[in-house]
Design a binder for these strands. Structure first.
Lengths: 196, 196
DNA sequence: CGGCTACTATGACCACTGTCATAGTCGGCC
DNA sequence: GGCCGACTATGACAGTGGTCATAGTAGCCG
């Protein structure tokens, strides 16, 4: 965090994602986004002529790219890459954040899906794109670890689904238990899929 | 659905849950809830003096009880109860709804968690209670199927987490693929936990 | 009948939201 | 300098949200 060396436009997208993470799309007001990004309010209509919908969509897509890139970082941090290790690292990012900063925030893609899947078609598409952007590197990593290509994508879907749900339950319970539990329970299945 | 033989109070709680399911808590206006429930607007402040927060909390708790009771129904519908069969039935409820009515709605507990976990402490507690109310019968069912007591609760957490995440992805993609995928992938693990 | 309680009806209030219109500033480039 | 584009600043607007205040109705009880 704490990169002040970005243009105001990117900062606003980032701030939008942060605020959406906390209270959903409706709770992330345009004025608040500008304030959080230390950006002038007048710039919103300049950079995002499509209005809030455009800003939200870019925030969701940004989150998808961020999650996708994190996969490579997680893999680099594992000396002995296994499916279970990757999943544990993905979950650990959340347990660490929750331990450090509390349970205020969740996944912005999930929030946008909940708030906009029925009303905002473009935002729903952005969320679908974000999930795909996230799932692809996971599936590729699984394939590299020996998971048959036919199952890699399915297991990536399983991992992301389970992680998203565990994030939800963890926030509701204010406890990382769901996150640690799903890692422990899903681990053997994931490693078994990577072959002998 | 379509039980008009309930009191206005219960109808409003039900309608609130329905509207929260679609667009989140913020999108479910009080006036809209009353209209959806065919209930007088003036009754809102009479039955829910605690305001919207109380109404939302009751809707979330109602959803938790509903989900918990569904578990018994699913079990009754399985002639040969297995963990996988239960999970498949839970997911099938969603695939069937999505096939019949489209992907407009998700889980109200998830929506309330996303929108209120950071801002509304009482709603967060209601969501935690709802998840617990849902998880308990699942864990008990698993235990009855032969899953060791020590693992039953963990597997129930895994099932609910995975289902919630798959619901999210399915709505985003407008495709039941995530739901069917997680059932197929998680099934063997669940059945293996039920013993030989 | 009077009186009481449960419930309904309706309008007003205030805080906000996203969006727009308009004007202003700054910096480079001819 | 003069011009022009990019960006900023600010106030207004129309709409909507939840909530409150007040008044009204229905039905039962005595």
């Amino acid at each position: 965090m704490a990169e002040a060396r970005r243009g105001p436009r990117e900062r606003m997208v980032f701030s939008a994602a942060q605020l959406i993470r906390r209270g959903g799309v409706a709770a992330a007001g345009m004025r608040e986004v500008a304030a959080h990004a230390d950006a002038p309010r007048g710039s919103l209509q300049h950079y995002f002529p499509g209005g809030k919908e455009q800003l939200v969509n870019e925030a969701v897509e940004w989150a998808g790219r961020y999650a996708g890139k994190r996969v490579a970082r997680f893999l680099a941090g594992l000396e002995h890459p296994t499916p279970r290790g990757l999943f544990a690292a993905m979950a650990a990012q959340w347990t660490e954040e929750y331990a450090a900063d509390g349970f205020a925030a969740g996944c912005p893609v999930a929030a946008a899906t909940v708030d906009c899947a029925a009303s905002g078609e473009s935002t729903r598409e952005a969320a679908a794109t974000a999930f795909a952007t996230w799932r692809r590197p996971v599936a590729e990593a699984l394939a590299d670890m020996g998971v048959p290509a036919s199952r890699a994508d399915a297991l990536a879907t399983l991992m992301i689904s389970t992680l998203e749900g565990a994030i939800l339950m963890a926030r509701a319970e204010r406890d990382v238990r769901p996150l640690t539990t799903v890692v422990a329970e899903l681990g053997p299945l994931l490693d078994a899929a990577a072959g002998p």
